[in-house]
Design a protein around this nucleic acid. Structure first.
Lengths: 336, 336
DNA sequence: ATGAAAGCGCTAACAA
DNA sequence: TTGTTAGCGCTTTCAT
């Protein structure tokens, strides 16, 4: 194993002290130009790079941020991760990604593990179980140690930290209004994620939008068994003579479209469909899905920006802010 | 900022030396039981955890593996990442994820960055540009330094390292044969990823499967502009009276399905469609797509296993192996 | 049974 | 202009 080159070795070969070499590499003006050049030459000959671990230990900074995600197969989080990664790497930060799989226990484990000097700060979207249990001790601990945390999308009011969320309430309100405006009267809201904070907000928006002329029915379906979800939605669509469906997640909308086909309903003539999360399914459904875009990538990027700012100019007393990213309704072919 | 607890502080409070505390925490038999208990008590009171950085610097191990991925919005890689993450975290490893966005330059940067003591080893899927340019110096450097690397899916013969690949050739061969067996004669192969090693293999499989009774046409479409891809596929389907389409990537297959609807073709009665990558699009297309599953999750998990094995029992002379993961054709509703 | 000391690779205050 | 030294937090060998 060809060992990595260290300052020590460079120093020995050049007959200089370690500190002189170190300073030379930083072009410290107190070192003679001649020495600086000699050092740079040998360093680049050996392709010297400082040992990141040692630098981190010394500086107490790792240039790494920890990302806690509930899921990665979900396009929304994948896009957010993409946005985070871009922003981080553009600023010389690495990311370490942990996937909790919606488990509280894993979330706690990950946060604790990363907090032992592996990362400078966290970007978090809470797991479903954590939201249900409402237990946030692991974040209080970070707070106490003054470790910067930015939460996005899946947040909790009980945690005092910067947050980036989507105006979910407004979004579903707009969606329902759009449906009503295009003549839909009997509208169903289908959700497979009722435990989540975002679902609750979306539901609130729905309620606000309910018009005297329209009848909005709500159905919640458990996600556990995806076979069932399809059958349930099919049955539901068949039993109710609906004008429109608002799916509170992308899958619900996609399945609604497909079950409508199966039942022989024409979209959007017989039934309109709107979904959430402008992911692959929305773009490649037939007809293309009208959908609420949450701008996941910007969301992730924004969360990263906020965190990086906090890491750069660290203030002892930080006042938490919540930033709301506007959604937009992307009208495609599944609505009138 | 409440500083993190260190051995030093524990030692001071307990009136012991740092080394005694360190040993106690490891239940070293040469320390008296009484002392061990005292130490453990205070440690857990302060919720002491060793500083990962210091441990890494000392041990020259980071318990972290670097993942280099060309894309994350692609379901295949997201699933593979999921498999890797599971396997890694089950074995006490963290992962740091880098997304090259198919760029050679970013790939080189990431590999170099992580190699400076941030990770113990790498799991890599090559970027498209790297495969086109055929430049692998950054991996030769790792080889020289004896840093374990496992590549998966997007690999190169020119790099000597462990690999996990999918039997792409066999997979497309089987897919074509399936189409032929179900009575399809005029078959098109649509690919938007012709630059990739995997596409070439899949194409080889197609050729092997060509039967005297069937006529197989090949069309390659550039991925750059997705608007165009749809229009091109529509035009193509319209101009050719096809019995079946094999999409060499999931998107191509999904679009083929949708354009068939648009043209009024019934699936699978008028035209059969098979895709690659058993992702969300395949499960939520209508009709559900018959598809080649590459078992991305297992692929990722296997890559991680191989890497972790190598990290555990390090042998000076390691002989590189290539593991082939079998694909399977998941027959759903888009074929006869 | 406990402690002192060296060292992982680096930075930086201080000395020469 | 260059070098010495201490220290980041930990492990480990070698005294005591």
């Amino acid at each position: 194993m060809r060992k990595k080159v260290t300052l020590k070795q460079l120093a020995r070969e050049l007959n200089l002290s370690i500190s002189t070499v170190s300073k030379s590499l930083k072009n410290d003006p107190e070192i003679s130009e001649k020495t600086i050049n000699r050092v740079h030459e040998l360093a680049s000959f050996y392709n010297y790079k400082p040992n990141a671990l040692a630098v981190s230990l010394k500086s107490n900074k790792t240039k790494t941020i920890g990302i806690i995600l509930p899921e990665i197969l979900n396009h929304f989080f994948a896009k957010a991760l993409y946005g985070i990664e871009q922003e981080a790497s553009n600023n010389g930060y690495k990311i370490v990604t942990c996937i909790t799989n919606e488990s509280y226990k894993k979330e706690v484990e990950y946060v604790e593990m990363l907090n032992y000097s592996s990362v400078d700060g966290f970007i978090v979207a809470l797991s479903q179980e954590t939201q249900v249990l409402n237990k946030f001790d692991h974040y209080q601990a970070l707070k106490r140690e003054n470790v910067p945390v930015v939460m996005f999308d899946r947040v909790s009011e009980e945690i005092d930290c910067d947050k980036v969320i989507v105006d979910d309430k407004e979004a579903s309100k707009n969606a329902i209004e759009y449906l009503i405006n295009t003549g839909c009267k009997k509208i169903a809201v289908i959700t497979t994620i009722s435990d989540l904070s975002v679902a609750k907000l979306r539901l609130e928006g729905v309620k606000e939008a309910i018009d005297i002329n329209a009848e909005v029915t709500l159905i919640e379906l458990p996600l556990r068994d995806s076979q069932n979800v399809e059958a349930e939605i099919e049955k539901f669509l068949n039993n109710n003579d609906l004008d429109a469906v608002l799916g509170l997640d992308e899958t619900a909308a996609a399945i609604s479209i497909n079950m409508s086909h199966k039942l022989g309903y024409k979209i959007p003539e017989d039934i309109s469909v709107i979904g959430f999360t402008d992911g692959l399914l929305s773009k490649h459904s037939y007809p293309k899905l009208t959908t609420v875009s949450q701008h996941a990538e910007e969301l992730g990027a924004k969360a990263a920006q906020i965190l990086l700012n906090q890491l750069d100019d660290f203030e002892e007393k930080h006042i938490s802010k919540t930033e709301v990213v506007k959604t937009s309704l992307i009208v495609r072919d599944s609505t009138n």
